[in-house]
């Protein structure tokens, strides 16, 4: 085993493009998953009962099957029902769908954890439904769900590596391609691991910062 830094410098442009795709898919996928997850949780809480039950079943199926199987179903099975997607859009859609099921459960837990008394109090002072969601539910919930939401966002960074299997040219695919080209698997994969490790630790750190900042919303001893 030998390590050649020139190899990395030589391939820096493609490594950087892989990195940008990893970060971009993660950001878009996470934001999409948070939004869709919030819509699902709201529909389950406030929508009609049959809709809520159908959504609940879908969430269970997504949470009960591997992400890779969902991706394969979308990417290889999609064309048979007229859904022709390139690797990158398929990966983004897959990541969003997968993440939204988990985020919807986090939000559902958040909705349920806000004390009923607070909502009743808001009703008593004459806030309407939208105001209650905006002024009471969301701020109180944000603090309650933040730790698990940050955790989920970090899990999604790691899930982006799976997209390499359906040939999305993100970091894992680029680096392992370089590794196989030069027969330097171990070195390149080790660097890749260190890189993800740093990214995950950084996001964990930022998440804890955000929690500390938002902590004035924390419910006292509830």
């Amino acid at each position: 085993m030998r390590f050649d830094p020139a190899l990395i410098i030589h391939h820096l442009p493609s490594i950087l493009s892989g990195l940008s795709i990893t970060i971009l898919t993660w950001l878009i996928g996470t934001i999409g998953a948070v939004l869709v997850g919030f819509v699902i949780a709201s529909a389950r809480r406030f929508g009609p009962r049959p809709l809520g039950m159908a959504l609940g079943a879908i969430v269970e199926v997504i949470r009960g099957t591997p992400f890779l199987i969902q991706l394969f179903l979308l990417y290889f099975g999609g064309p048979y029902i007229g859904l022709f997607l390139d690797p990158l859009p398929a990966g983004l859609l897959g990541l969003t769908v997968y993440g939204s099921a988990y985020f919807s459960e986090i939000f559902r837990g958040g909705f349920e954890a806000v004390p009923v008394g607070h909502i009743e109090a808001a009703e008593c002072v004459g806030l309407n439904r939208l105001q209650i969601v905006k002024r009471i539910l969301l701020p109180e919930m944000s603090m309650l769900v933040l730790p698990s939401a940050v955790n989920m966002a970090i899990l999604l960074i790691k899930e982006t590596a799976v997209l390499s299997i359906i040939t999305v040219p993100e970091l894992t695919m680029i680096v392992s391609a370089i590794g196989s080209e030069y027969y330097a698997f171990v070195e390149s994969l080790f660097l890749l691991a260190l890189f993800y490790w740093a990214l995950v630790e950084l996001c964990g750190f930022l998440g804890r910062k955000a929690e500390a900042k938002l902590s004035h919303f924390r419910l006292s001893a509830s």
Binding site: K158, T160, V162, T172, G179, V186, L189, F190, L192, W197
Partner: peptide, 15 residues
């Protein structure tokens, strides 16, 4: 906990 499982598996398989 910080490294994607896929990367861990590839690393161990080659290491």
């Amino acid at each position: 906990r910080g490294v994607p499982l896929l990367v861990q598996l590839l690393l161990i398989y080659n290491l």
